[in-house]
Design a binder for these strands. Structure first.
Lengths: 128, 128
DNA sequence: ACATTAGTTAGACACTTGGCTAACTATGCA
DNA sequence: TGCATAGTTAGCCAAGTGTCTAACTAATGT
């Protein structure tokens, strides 16, 4: 039962649902991209990712300085749940807005995005 | 998205999951039976029920002094979710313990149970 | 080696949540 | 009409959560 409550706790936060929704669309995203999407500090995003990972819903992969996240789909158990969430989110207007923003974010490489987050001009992410 | 987070918040508490699991097995249960199962005050149980109802997962029906609750199944949306939860809970040892206790609780009428909760001797619910 | 930097961990703080008791509401019965 | 009682609401408190800043870790590149 604890495993189940952990999954639901992980999904019960708006920003974490936004992360899940982003990963459902983009398959793999790095920390800085998710940070940019949510407009929170890296520390906050990292904590959210930690919660999603320990619930078993998300996997991470380190590549150099970057960490990439993706939905854990191999687990037959949670796959039904993930699919249900996907259906629910597909009609959500907030998710649609995030999708647009995500397309902008992923239009440049993470490296450029990180430069932008340090305040340097680089790739064309419009200010919101 | 708020509707979805409300559903997951509702499900992210251990006692509320126990309530859901009880209602999956017994179709309809009254407040005093759920109070007895969780071993919390009536006020606490009532708050949990309120959260489950406003998430849309549970319906209530008043019958005289008693209020009966049941899983809201007509909603095609959440039906898949409910079924998934049912599957997950079916292998859970804590749920199995609750099931035994519930059989004892439902073996007497709510009216008798309420007398018992006031400290009067009535139907044979063993002390735990 | 050393400086730079992407991400995590620690600590602080405001807000939320789960539990309780006590007061309240509403239904049934004498 | 008035008492008893099942359930809800209000108010309180301890514990948990989401966010931030600051310190830390690990990887890159000069």
């Amino acid at each position: 039962m604890d495993k189940l409550t952990a999954i639901f706790k992980a999904l019960s936060d708006r920003n974490r649902l936004r992360i899940v929704s982003a990963l459902l669309k983009h398959d793999e995203l790095c920390a800085c991209q998710l940070t940019e999407l949510l407009q929170v500090t890296g520390a906050t995003a990292s904590r959210h990712m930690g919660i999603l990972i320990s619930s078993g819903l998300v996997d991470s992969r380190k590549d150099g300085r970057w960490v990439y996240y993706r939905i854990r789909r191999k687990q037959a158990d949670s796959d039904v749940l993930i699919k249900w969430i996907e259906t629910q989110l597909s009609r959500d207007p907030d998710v649609a807005l995030d999708a647009i923003k995500l397309d902008e974010i992923t239009s440049c490489e993470p490296e450029e995005l990180c430069r932008k987050q340090r305040g340097e001009k680089c790739c064309p992410i419009p200010a919101h």
